[in-house]
Design a binder for these strands. Sequence first.
DNA 1: GAAGATATGTTATAATATATCAACCCAAAA
DNA 2: TTTTGGGTTGATATATTATAACATATCTTC
Lengths: 156, 156
Amino acid sequence: MHDLGFAQHDHAACVATALSTAEATCAAQKLQLTPTRRRVLEILLEEHRAMGAYDILAVLSSEGIGSQPPVVYRALDFLVSNGFAHKIEKRNAYLACAHPGEDHSPVFLICRACDTVAEATLPMADLRRAADETGFLIETTVIEIEGLCPDCRKAA
Amino acid sequence: MHDLGFAQHDHAACVATALSTAEATCAAQKLQLTPTRRRVLEILLEEHRAMGAYDILAVLSSEGIGSQPPVVYRALDFLVSNGFAHKIEKRNAYLACAHPGEDHSPVFLICRACDTVAEATLPMADLRRAADETGFLIETTVIEIEGLCPDCRKAA
DNA sequence: GAAGATATGTTATAATATATCAACCCAAAA
DNA sequence: TTTTGGGTTGATATATTATAACATATCTTC
Ligand SMILES: [Zn+2]
Ligand SMILES: [Zn+2]
Ligand SMILES: [Zn+2]
Ligand SMILES: [Zn+2]
């Protein structure tokens, strides 16, 4: 496990880099990163936190991009399906991927106190081997760990 | 990983044993396994599958136990809080625990074809150690693996 | 330029879950 | 014994999350 995301970072660069990567990936895979899809990804990157679909929709609505639920759910579906964002099932919230284009099995560390969600990765070898022995074919994984992040742990 | 739950079993005994265990555990911990709570657990055990809250409510309603959402959500909250049932976040569904009283970190194997959900356990040592190194305090885990169960894999 | 695939606009509704407050029950304290 | 407090239930209303359905538009390809 690495890259826990609790550290400081240059956020403007972080957003710009991620958007560029997404554009390049979409171009390479002939995926259409349309204005709405791009803007939703940008919002998730800018906010840098897990956001509810309706929180995102409120931003889109304030910008005149769209105010109906399907607008945001369609964009999120595209982003999640293509690995640019993840859904945090425990919160019904969405988060920009911290490892775009890397083909990874994310592990989310969710702080119940400050709501920060960090994306880490875990080698899937063990899990996959164990499941293979039983004959189960793994297609997707949801691994979410809830607790206290280092900062909130100290504060408590 | 063990006890995958895809095998045949004596279901009547399975239900009876689980209910007895739950009664004993509640008595020991001074928890109130009230009629509604007991019946919801029994429904989950009998059905032996992940059920939506409103599916369970339909059964309760047909039995005159209650027809309003809080009835079932309160019972589920009790059962989940006390380890008698689990929520499958990926499906917004609930399942009787296959290891009641064992203090375990469940791993769910969800078949996308037949909707079977098997509960396994995985040693948490690695995950816990890795998180500890980062200072994150693990309180709860959600580990859900979606794919094809052995039967559906063969059929496909 | 017709056909097919993909994306968007729009309205409505489904599915999941919680807030709130009054009433009830039971056990322990005064 | 009466009171008090915690936990549970009944009942109404509402909040939150997500999708169905269908028309329109846009772009590509034949
Ligand atoms: Zn990711
Ligand atoms: Zn925190
Ligand atoms: Zn369990
Ligand atoms: Zn199956």
